Simulated assay, not measured.
Amino acid sequence: MQQVVDFILEIDKLKRVTRKIRPLGLDRYENPAEHSWQIAMLASSLAPHAPPSIDLSRVIAMLLVHDIGEIDAGDTFFFAEDSGAKSKERACVERIFALLPEPQRSAFLALWIELDENETAEARFAHAVDRAMPVLLNLANHGQSWRENGVSHAQVVGRVGPPIRAGCPALWAHIEARLDEALRDGWFGTRER
């Protein structure tokens, strides 16, 4: 029991990490713990649009563990250049999951790796949901993070379109139309990267 308690208290540190997007109606930035909870709920809500025979409980488990590596690595802005954060995140999840007894230790690491490798239907669906949530928040916040960080419409479509389309085509159809509206409304940053 103490190993589980130690693990849960260690992952509480995820609440200290700051992301680049604000929750609706708040002046502060969200943290990855809030993000993970919200995308788990989004995946659950999108179940009717998920690929056939998907194991939704596996998707939710992936989404709940996917950002734990940010405890040590911090949040990497999605549109930033690759900073080698993935290897830092991997070392962190190995450290943190090692707090748990087997078989939980290996099971959580396997879920994290499965999502990272993005080869199963569950991983693709989870990836789609993970990529979609910041877009949905930006759309609801009139492009807050995009405007603050100089992110263009082309960058958003180019980075999030393929994984969302691959994992949940119906979600991409909805988001793509909304992104076009946001472009007309001027909700994107001005500099191209």
Rank of each mutant, 00 (worst) to 15 (best):
G150I: 12
D55S: 10
N141S: 13
A98N: 15
A166M: 11
L139T: 14
Q104D: 05
R105Q: 07
G161C: 08
R90G: 10
I96F: 08
A91R: 15
A128P: 13
A73F: 01
K88Y: 03
E81W: 03
M62G: 11
F77L: 06
K86P: 07
E70H: 02
H153I: 10
A123M: 11
A140Y: 07
D130S: 15
P101Q: 13
G167L: 02
P134E: 07
V59Q: 03
L139A: 13
W146C: 10
D72M: 07
L136G: 05
D72I: 01
F97H: 15
V157M: 11
I113A: 07
L115G: 12
M133T: 09
L63N: 10
R90N: 09
V59D: 04
I96R: 06
S83T: 12
F125M: 13
F97P: 11
A80I: 01
F79Q: 04
W112C: 04
L111E: 00
R165D: 11
K86G: 10
L136M: 15
L99I: 13
N118V: 09
G69R: 02
V151F: 06
S145M: 13
A170S: 15
A123W: 06
I54E: 00
F108P: 04
A140K: 14
F78N: 03
A98S: 15
E117A: 03
P169C: 10
E117L: 03
A126L: 05
D130H: 15
V65W: 04
R165C: 05
G167E: 03
G74I: 07
N149A: 09
G69D: 01
I54K: 00
L171T: 09
G158M: 12
A140E: 15
D55N: 15
A123Q: 10
R159A: 13
E89H: 10
I60D: 06
N138Y: 04
F78L: 07
F97C: 11
G161L: 08
A126W: 01
V151I: 15
H153L: 14
E148P: 12
G150K: 08
G143H: 06
I60C: 05
P103L: 06
T120G: 09
F125I: 13
A121F: 02
N138I: 14
F108R: 09
R105H: 04
L63W: 10
F78T: 11
N118I: 04
A110D: 11
F108W: 10
L136H: 03
G161M: 05
S152N: 11
G161E: 10
V156Q: 14
A107I: 05
E119K: 07
G167V: 05
W146P: 08
V129Y: 00
E94Q: 14
P162R: 11
E114Q: 02
V129R: 02
L137H: 12
E94W: 01
E122H: 07
D67G: 00
T76C: 07
A170M: 13
F78V: 06
D116G: 02
N118W: 00
E102L: 06
